[in-house]
């Protein structure tokens, strides 16, 4: 399957974009950012919202001395204000061979979801960085900021192509190393790899807040067919001889449910919001309804 056939002229519908503008990414805790933004930062800053007092130490900015307190108490106190900062949003898209599959196409669905999340971030004044990983290739976009860069971000997403083996652990590792500060990390992947668990563990120690969005094509979710077939892994070329039939499908469904449950439990253990979506679910529904339900979007 060539993913170019799944590229629409534009990644997201204008109507969906307008609805996204009314929503925002919700961070469950305050995260340190870089520039001035619209989000509360753990740092004390220069906003109008008072936060605390502390004793003056030499070298402090004299502009923040509370002269009223000095007049009353004859001691020097420094006024501390809440810093309002921007948020770093990292969106990691799995571009391995297994994503080049399904109807609706998994990679295309991931592109659209990444675009929607990125747009949410851009609209909120956050800095957004996009990543694509597969095999040994790890691609990162520049940092986008401001609504005006959305088109460029979308174009970057459209240039992503699927292929290669899933190396989730390596991908997360690479991402963690390129982080300059905490932020929200979105992971869009089918997680069909044995190293999904170490990857989640690595994600947990990046210091940021992670959200896992797991996809599956309808054909993967409920396979059908019968007869003697030889399955070929799209990534590794590994083969498996299977005689399709009701009992094999039953066994597969059991395995699938167990797998999804273990991923969900893993995310819960690390405190990640987790969302499983079939690609048959429209992207707007997934972003505006399902992600809102898990508290990622508000």
């Amino acid at each position: 399957m060539n993913d170019s056939t799944h590229q629409p002229a534009y990644l997201l519908e204008p109507a969906f974009l307008r609805r996204l503008e009314q929503a925002a990414l919700a961070s469950r805790r305050a995260l340190a950012g870089r520039g001035k933004g619209e989000r509360r930062s753990p740092r004390r800053g220069t906003s109008v919202e008072f936060s605390d007092f502390r004793a003056y130490a030499p070298g402090d900015d004299l502009r923040y001395l509370d002269w009223n307190a000095f007049a009353r108490l004859r001691r020097l106190f420094l006024k501390l204000f809440v810093e309002e900062e921007d948020l770093q949003v990292h969106i990691l898209v799995d571009t391995s061979g297994s994503m080049d599959f399904g109807n609706p196409h998994k990679l295309q669905w991931a592109r659209q979801a990444a675009a929607a999340l990125g747009y949410l971030g851009l609209c909120g004044g956050d800095r957004v960085r996009l990543y694509g990983y597969a095999d040994q290739q790890f691609r990162a976009s520049r940092v986008f900021r401001g609504r005006g860069t959305a088109v460029e971000a979308f174009e970057w997403l459209l240039r992503l192509e699927a292929g290669g083996e899933t190396r989730l652990r390596a991908g997360v590792d690479y991402l963690a190393r390129s982080l300059t500060g905490p932020g929200i990390i979105f992971l869009l992947s089918d997680l069909l790899t044995p190293d999904w668990e170490p990857a989640l563990g690595r994600l947990a120690v990046t210091g940021g807040e992670a959200c896992v969005l797991q996809l599956m094509a309808p054909e993967e979710f409920s396979p059908g067919g019968s007869g003697d077939i030889e399955m070929v892994d799209a990534e590794t070329g590994e083969t498996r001889e299977v005689t399709m039939g009701a009992s094999v499908v039953r066994r597969y469904v059991k395995e699938r449910d167990a797998f999804l449950a273990s991923v969900r439990n893993g995310c819960r253990r690390y405190g990640f919001p987790y969302l499983f979506q079939e690609t048959s679910t429209p992207v707007p529904d997934a972003i505006l309804r399902s992600l809102r339900r898990v508290g990622v979007v508000q």
Partner: peptide, 22 residues
Amino acid sequence: KLRRQRVLVSSVFLWQRAVDDL
């Protein structure tokens, strides 16, 4: 034996476990 039909799947990750069970 008869030649099996080759079918491309995204991953044999889950299948492996289902077939291994067999």
